[in-house]
């Protein structure tokens, strides 16, 4: 397998606080890769640096051989990277259906069409995606009124609508009940495998992480302190010190 995403020497600091410290990272195509770390370890910043929501101070990010640094988010998504956000990030006053429909319209570059009725476009594609994430019955509901777990599912559908090859999910199960978490993760894995996607995700629930990740990287104070398959990471002395010494593995707080 070749490297799909390649990051080298990435730095980012905010007013003197270093959020990302010399991070180098490679992601192989088809991999399910988890980024874990205590709260404030810099996971979301790391995602934001990849997707263009933040600009790194130093370092390179390349996706399938293309340099991403300096590209705006809307260009990066067009290269084949989609993401969900840790905080719910949907269009609350639109219907569930329209939330996904708009993403398909944008993916097809039809947002500049001033004549075709927007609601008549991509009806089938939208229905398929909603079916895929288990929201087929909720299409007509106002997105902002869905339950938290369903809004997370909707986010996934929006991300998938961009037909990404690399999917970044920031805490896909945050705020979910244990049962919802299990279902969500199973469906994410099925979708990713069925579509041949590459998945990079952050997650606080260690059971989930060790259950589905093929490789795990551990961020601590903005640095990657370990990276490897789940067993290697579980037995890594530095990781044990960070987790067991401070919080205990598997007991990371929410959010």
């Amino acid at each position: 397998m070749t490297d799909m995403l390649s990051i080298s020497g990435l730095w980012k600091s905010f007013a003197g606080f270093v959020a990302t410290r010399d991070v180098s990272f490679d992601l192989k195509a088809g991999e399910l890769h988890a980024v874990i770390g205590p709260n404030g370890a810099g996971k979301t910043t790391f995602f934001n640096l990849i997707t263009g929501h933040l600009r790194p101070d130093k370092g390179a990010v390349s996706f399938e051989g293309r340099d991403l640094v300096g590209l705006p988010p809307q260009k990066i998504v067009r290269l084949g990277i989609a993401r969900s956000f840790q905080r719910i990030n949907i269009y609350p006053r639109l219907t569930v259906f329209e939330n996904v429909q708009v993403a398909l319209i944008a993916h097809e570059g039809q947002q500049w069409n001033l004549f075709r009725p927007g609601r008549s476009l991509h009806r089938e594609g939208t229905a398929e995606l909603l079916e895929l994430v288990g929201l087929a019955a909720e299409g007509a509901e106002t997105a902002g009124e869905l339950s938290y777990g369903k809004q997370k599912q909707l986010e996934l559908a929006i991300a998938l609508a961009s037909q990404p090859r690399l999917l970044l999910l920031d805490e896909p199960t945050a705020g979910m009940s244990p049962q919802e978490t299990g279902e969500t993760i199973a469906s994410v894995r099925d979708i990713v495998k069925a579509r041949g996607l590459t998945l990079l995700f952050t997650e606080h629930d260690m059971a989930v992480v060790f259950g589905i990740a093929e490789r795990i990287s551990v961020l601590h104070h903005g640095e990657i302190i370990a990276s490897g398959d789940p067993d290697a990471v579980r037995n890594d002395a530095e990781v044990r010190r960070v987790y067991l010494g401070e919080h205990g593995l598997g007991e990371q707080g929410h959010g």
Binding site: P73, Q74, V77, R78, F85, N89, I90, A106, H107
Partner: peptide, 11 residues
């Protein structure tokens, strides 16, 4: 409704 999200569907 959500400019950040709209940006990240490629708009």
């Amino acid at each position: 409704e959500n400019a950040v999200r709209a940006g990240f569907i490629g708009v």
